[in-house]
Amino acid sequence: MNMTLDIVILLALILAALWTVMTRSLLRSAIGLALVSAILTILLFRFDSPLAAVFELSVCSGLISVVFISTISLTEPMTMKEVIKHMKDRLTRFWYLPFIVVIVGTALSLLDIRLNIKVPPAETQKDVREVLWNMRQLDLIGQVTILLAGVFGVAILFKEGRKK
């Protein structure tokens, strides 16, 4: 593994995250989140996890962005006056964040923690599908169940209520 390349990608990740949090418009924030996911996808590929990477790319930077963007467009945009007030407000609150992040980062990099782990015996390299279907069957059932719960949730929350 090439360490410098890793560091560059990680820096890009942090910058994208900072932009996500600091940017003024919610829409850009959602796009920033998709960017973070995309960069994370590269990292997952580098860690020998191609299937998880594909999932991350399609689901997180795809589906979740769609969900966020449609939520943002469904909620009312603010008036101009509110936006200006909001901007000033935000500037005073979010101003500190980059400094905190940089300071913590440097402080932590001064620490030099090295693990000395007796790595447990590595399994025979199996395919991830096999692991998922045979060894982690319970999680699959769990996935189905939570998807069902999500379906009922959406059915309840988005049903136009016959309100009293």
Binding site: A122, V128, D139
Partner: peptide
């Protein structure tokens, strides 16, 4: 154990 954590991450 990258294979196992990959399965976990998908869930």
């Amino acid at each position: 154990h990258p294979v196992m954590t990959q399965a976990l991450v998908i869930t």
